[in-house]
Every structure is written in structure tokens, then in C-alpha cells.
Nucleic acid binder design. Structure first.
Lengths: 120, 120
DNA sequence: TTGATATTGCAAGAATTATTGAAATATGGG
DNA sequence: CCCATATTTCAATAATTCTTGCAATATCAA
């Protein structure tokens, strides 16, 4: 993960609607939701959802795929993990004796090692 | 953590200079760095650093305190933990059977339970 | 093919955020 | 008290991002 990628990801989450979309999709799990379902859940219009969903996809935080007339989207769990890692991986320069707890940076997100089939 | 707080935190990190500042401070650990040291490390001017540092402080991601003529800043590790949690805590609606790995959302950052004295 | 549903693209204005240097403030040392 | 260092404030400009409705595209079902 480079800085540009990380900034793009943070920017994608730095918006009330997109954060709500992201959290809605995190809750939905690997099978995701259709654009319409997300728009309804978040309370925004189709145009607005499309705009914001595209931002999340572009940032690599979500993935979208077509199922008939619907576009389903879900969170790219691995990307979230990499993002968290990028933020904190150099914590205390990796010298735990500088810190109290002394854990090396680590971020774990639900849904295991990412891809768990479902209807992708 | 509410949505407004989370958006403010993500916005604070959604900028190349501020992300660099944040990561520099994460690496520095609880004792932090002075504004000048950060500015030099990141390669920006004093005015610019002051502007961006204030954003990080305002977002609650960092804390700053005066030591003589210097202002030192360090990362608020607990705030980072809460932010990560807010992003992923509802993962798969807390129903691990929907996910492969089945972990509940969890984000761990170095430096233990936050405050480890040093020169605060 | 036609109609209905689902989603995206476009364009212009509105709003927010970033950049810059110069001046102002705070502190410690002599 | 005066000077040098460290940081912040101010103000104007520049740049980016958001919002909105409507038209366009894609797919399915009849």
C-alpha cells in the first residue's frame, strides 16, 4: 500500500454518505447488497448512490458486480486490512519497548481471509 | 463514536500531508515530536504544519501539549482504536456464520491501553 | 419490440478545503 | 528588557469535491 492509495481510501470514507454505505455493506457481509437496497438503507437517491459507490469502488474499498439488472456491491475486506496496517504498522518504530502494551500494529477484520464465495 | 466524529477523523487522514504527519507520530510513539521535527520529517513549512496539525488535533486523532517553546504532539491511540472499531464493528451483523473466518471485528494498535506517561 | 425497472453519465452551480507569505504571539536566555 | 526561536493567525486566492435533475443505457418480462 502506498500513500496515494491510502489517501484515496481515507478520502472515500471521509464523507457521511459513503461511510454509511461502507458500514451498511460491512454489515451485509460477502454477499453484498444491490445498489437500490443500499440507497434505501442509507436514505439517498440513485444518482447520489451511484456517484458515491463509484468512489468507494475506485478506492478499492468495495467491489461491484452485475447480477441481472442489479449491481451488487460488497466490501473488499483485504483492502481494509491493508489500509489499517498502513496506518499503524510503523507504530513505535516496531520497538515495543517504547510502548506500554508493546503489540506490533495489527488490524483484524471479520470475514476471514477475504473471498468467501457467495454469489460473486 | 458517532458518524460525525468518524467522518471528521477520516477527513483528517484523507490528505497526503496529514497522513504523513500521522504516520510520523505513530512511529515516534507516546513521547511524540515537536512541531518543527514533524515539519522537517514531512517536508512542509511551519504554517502548513500548524494548519494540518490542528486538523488532526480537532479530529481527536492526536494530542498536543507545550514543552517550553515547543509544542509536542502524539497520536491518541485509543481514538484510532475506536475509529477502526466503528468502521467494522457491525461486520456481517455480528453473525460469524455468514463469514468464513468468523472473527468479530477487532482493531489493535501498538502502545497498549493508550497513555504511557513519557513527557506529557 | 415495448414497457418497466435499475443504474449511470452529464453539466453547472454551490460549498468546502488547501496554500501562501507576512505579521502576530509565546517563550527562554542573556 | 531585548533578541532569537518556535508556532499560530490572518486573509485572499486557488483547487477540489458535492449536489441535483434529467437524459441515456442496460436488462428483464410480456
Amino acid at each position: 500500500m502506498d500513500e496515494t492509495t491510502a489517501v484515496r481510501a481515507m478520502s472515500a470514507l471521509a464523507h457521511a454518505h459513503r461511510l454509511a454505505i461502507f458500514r451498511t455493506l460491512i454489515a451485509a457481509g460477502p454477499s453484498g447488497l444491490s445498489a437500490g437496497e443500499v440507497a434505501r438503507a442509507v436514505g439517498i437517491g440513485a444518482t447520489s448512490l451511484s456517484f458515491h459507490m463509484k468512489e468507494l469502488d475506485r478506492a478499492g474499498l468495495t467491489r461491484s458486480w452485475r447480477v441481472g439488472r442489479f449491481i451488487r456491491s460488497s466490501v473488499e475486506v483485504e483492502a481494509v486490512r491493508r489500509l489499517f496496517g498502513f496506518l499503524v504498522d510503523d507504530c513505535c518504530q516496531g520497538r515495543p519497548e517504547l510502548c506500554g502494551g508493546g503489540l506490533t500494529a495489527n488490524a483484524v477484520v471479520c470475514c476471514g481471509q477475504d473471498d468467501n464465495e457467495s454469489n460473486r
